[in-house]
């Protein structure tokens, strides 16, 4: 079987398209590269949507943490402590067990029946956990940045007559993002790496549709040879991490474009700031 045929058969296997059965014997390098690459779709999916939703949630949480209302502030602090203080691995297990307990038939709300089965699937359940997790970590970063916004900037904005939403949108938020961005890049990389945990925790891989590490461990288990499959995953992740750093670097330059000489190359220091 040629390599091109393998790519056609297994390129989208992680989404359930193409060949149904995974290769069982005579594993070729091409099969391993293709299947593991196909699993990478899930890692990118989880990372993209968790970061997208988590970003807005984190901004809200960071603002709640600075709020004068004690209830709002305390609940934001509690949320952040809960998700930063416990392992993501346990969060996945816990969320899965909790979501499984929801009634199978669905929940009745306003006469409509809301299905709950989809919540126990990895694409939704794990995404929710990842979103909440990254929101908690990012909120801590954003809060730190919000506290570091120069006092003069805010006073200048007030002198111009800006208040409330306008002041936030034009002054606070852009400055907060600019200050938080190097740390936020670290967080994004960490989250991307954390997506490999999804199919090793409570969430089962439906019809063997897993992420890249799921397929890599499948190959390593079948061939008793960890020296091929795991380096392939590592290679994919190094490439994606470099791409992510590049992408966030572009945003960093845009955020700092009004400050000549302020753009520093973001140095990725793994997890140090988390």
């Amino acid at each position: 079987m040629s390599c091109a045929q393998t790519v056609v058969d297994y390129g989208l296997r992680s989404l359930g398209l193409g060949e149904r059965l995974l290769p069982r014997s005579d594993f070729t390098l091409c099969q391993q590269v293709t299947l593991i690459g196909s699993g990478l779709i899930w890692n990118l999916y989880f990372a993209f949507f968790a970061l997208l939703f988590g970003f807005f949630l984190a901004t809200g949480l960071a603002l709640a943490k600075t709020s004068l209302n004690p209830w709002l502030r305390k609940s934001a602090n509690g949320f952040i402590f809960l998700f930063r203080g416990s392992p993501l691995f346990i969060q996945f297990f816990l969320a899965y067990e909790a979501l499984v307990l929801l009634p199978r038939a669905g929940i009745e709300i306003f006469g409509m029946t809301l299905g709950t089965g989809w919540l126990t699937k990895a694409w939704a359940g794990a995404l929710i956990v990842l979103t909440l997790n990254t929101a908690a970590y990012s909120a801590q970063i954003f809060h730190g940045a919000l506290m570091a916004v120069p006092k003069g900037d805010i006073e200048a904005a007030e002198a111009y007559g800006m208040t409330g939403w306008t002041k936030f949108r034009r002054i606070l938020w852009p400055t907060m993002l600019r200050l938080a961005w190097p740390s936020y890049t670290n967080e994004a990389i960490f989250l991307f790496h954390a997506t490999t945990l999804v199919f090793f925790s409570g969430f089962p891989a439906f019809q063997q549709r897993g992420d890249s590490l799921y397929y890599a461990s499948y190959f390593a288990g079948q061939t008793f040879n960890p020296f091929v499959a795991y380096p392939i995953v590592a290679g994919y992740f190094i490439l994606c991490t470099l791409a992510l750093i590049g992408l966030f670097g572009v945003v960093n330059r845009r955020l700092n474009r009004h400050l000549p000489g302020a753009v520093q190359r973001i140095r990725y220091r793994p997890q140090m700031i988390r």
Partner: peptide, 20 residues
């Protein structure tokens, strides 16, 4: 080496590699 690669990959790889 830990910068680009998820730590869980090492956790799965190192014990088997060392054992073998």
């Amino acid at each position: 080496m830990v910068r680009g690669v998820p730590d869980i990959v090492f956790f799965l790889f190192v014990p088997i590699a060392l054992d073998q």
